[in-house]
Design a binder for these strands. Structure first.
Lengths: 186, 186
DNA sequence: TCACGACGATACGGTTGCGTTCCGACGTGC
DNA sequence: GCACGTCGGAACGCAACCGTATCGTCGTGA
């Protein structure tokens, strides 16, 4: 029987390695070293670096996010942005996400795992918000959902991850207002 | 005197290596191999992989983009999106950009170079569009420019680079319409 | 014509990680 | 109290690069 505490130490080490050196530079030896564990323990659980990471990403994907339901489009967006921006503020997340995202451009398996996580996370929640707004009559019946999701998720990602500028007080509220206005124009 | 054709071959090889294996995995040996050149030729020009990449990124940053001026906010956005999406469609760009972006989270020098390229590229153009719209009276006087830039650039980046979904006919036009509406709400 | 310098090629010792194998120690279940 | 399987640690041969040095070749400018 594999020891669970060892497994957990390895998982934690992978996250740390992923954040500090990235997927490409990450090595099994480095993971074992950081976890205070023999290489054997790692190989006994996962066949390779790829399997290890895919496993972790899938595990996260399963979690899913809570769906906001404030009764208004703008309120829902505001809540979604609060949660998302808090998650993206964690250094671990903000380092790992773009790293894996870049890696996905080269590795179809990672791409698929990330897509799944995205679909069950951000994408799913945003989709729920938009549909609720349509049912409520806040958005038109024929609203282009794909475009709507891009309008909802794009700006915050751009600012947090690409531009990496800080979000001053009130930014999220104004973003929610502007986004809701854009959605109503669809 | 360093031979210019050799220099150019190295530059091209770097782009290809960057696209196919990424910054982290890229090696001087690999670059020289791909360029059909001795390692000596590379080291004679650049001290390291980092200097090489910084040099290339700066070179791109200098170029700058042409500023659209169609006379209307929506028209300008439309044109900007056409140009941007065409650029992002190139596999080389769509592989290299997220890769360097991820690397920037770890390396301040790369981050700075990318920020500069961003400022003189996408950011600058978008900024010009927004300001022109304000002068024209299409947008309010006190428009929050930072937020405006996120609204302009975020959605297309999200869709092209993160979600990696294709842009069907008419998408860019609808995106421009929705974005203009969002901006007017600021 | 001659000297200089960049060229590609090759080799150097050193480092790192690969994936595997063997070890003795420990702990748990029977 | 015994057997089994996991544990960390160490070593294996192999491969890739590092950055440097040293070749003989070739093209160009003085």
């Amino acid at each position: 029987m594999l020891r669970e505490d060892v497994t957990e130490a390895i998982r934690a080490a992978v996250f740390e390695e992923l954040a500090s050196v990235g997927y490409a530079r990450m090595s099994i030896e480095g993971i074992a070293r950081r976890a205070g564990v023999g290489k054997t323990a790692v190989y006994r659980r996962w066949r390779s670096k790829l399997h290890l990471v895919l496993d972790l990403v899938s595990a996260i994907a399963v979690q899913g996010l809570p769906a906001p339901d404030t009764g208004s489009l703008e309120g829902d967006l505001r809540l979604l942005y609060e949660v998302t921006s808090r998650a993206l503020r964690h250094p671990v997340a903000s380092q790992i996400i773009p790293d894996l995202q870049a890696e996905a451009a080269r590795n179809p398996e990672i791409a698929e795992a990330l897509q799944k996580a995205l679909r069950e996370g951000q994408h799913g929640v945003a989709s729920g918000i938009v549909r609720a707004a349509v049912e409520r009559g806040e958005l038109r019946e024929g609203t282009d959902e794909e475009l709507a999701l891009d309008l909802v998720s794009g700006p915050l990602y751009w600012r947090s991850v690409v531009v990496r500028a800080e979000l001053d007080k009130g930014y999220l509220a104004r973003l929610a207002t502007a986004t809701a206005a854009g959605l109503r124009a669809l």
